[in-house]
Simulated assay, not measured.
Amino acid sequence: MDKIYIEGLEVFSLIGVYDWERVATQRLVVDVTLYTDLSQAANSDKVEHTLNYAEVATCIELVAKSSEFELIEALANEMIKAIFAQFSLPKIRLKLSKPDILANALNVAVEFTRENPH
């Protein structure tokens, strides 16, 4: 299976459990692997034969911007559901990072790998 990677996509979301986290959006970083067949695009060199990764990035950004989840687990799950709803993909791996949350850690993240239920 071929893959398209979007790495280090910065998004902003109202996310967190604590009251101080609920007053302003926070920076999150998304790394996503989109599993798909790229053979037609590789042979044709035509953009219409591949997945538009800019549209996937926009989908992720819109989910982050419009949500108010407490947990990054819930937000990551919602991002995956939105990607599956908009794009025909058999499988997605998504890592959602909250890099600015712990002063003594570089990052806190969750990672999900999901197959399309349809």
Rank of each mutant, 00 (worst) to 15 (best):
E48L: 09
F69Q: 14
A54E: 14
K46A: 12
I80S: 01
L96M: 09
S97K: 07
A54R: 13
T58I: 08
M79W: 04
F84I: 05
L71Q: 06
H49L: 07
V63D: 08
L71T: 13
S67C: 13
L94A: 14
F69I: 03
V63N: 10
S97L: 01
A74H: 08
P90F: 03
I60S: 10
K46W: 05
E68D: 05
L62P: 00
H49N: 15
S67R: 12
L96C: 06
I60R: 09
M79D: 00
S97W: 00
T50Q: 09
H49T: 04
A64I: 09
I80K: 03
L96E: 10
E48F: 12
L51S: 07
V63E: 13
A57V: 05
E70D: 09
P90L: 01
H49M: 07
L51D: 06
N77P: 00
L89P: 13
S88A: 05
Y53Q: 06
E78T: 03
C59H: 04
N52E: 07
A74I: 00
K65E: 13
R93G: 04
A76Y: 05
A64M: 08
E55M: 04
K65G: 02
K46Y: 01
C59Q: 12
K81N: 11
A76H: 11
T50I: 08
N77A: 08
P99E: 07
A74S: 11
T58C: 02
L75H: 02
V63H: 06
E70C: 01
A85H: 11
E70S: 12
K91C: 14
E48H: 12
R93I: 08
V56H: 08
F84M: 10
K46M: 09
A82E: 13
T50V: 10
T58K: 15
R93P: 02
L75C: 06
A54V: 15
E78P: 00
L89T: 11
L71R: 05
A57K: 09
P99D: 04
A74F: 00
A64S: 11
C59P: 07
L75V: 09
S66G: 15
K81D: 14
K91T: 01
T50H: 10
R93Y: 04
K98Y: 10
L51K: 04
L71I: 04
E73F: 05
N77F: 00
A74E: 00
I72Q: 01
V56W: 11
F84E: 05
F87M: 02
E73W: 08
L51C: 03
T58N: 10
K46Q: 15
E48Q: 15
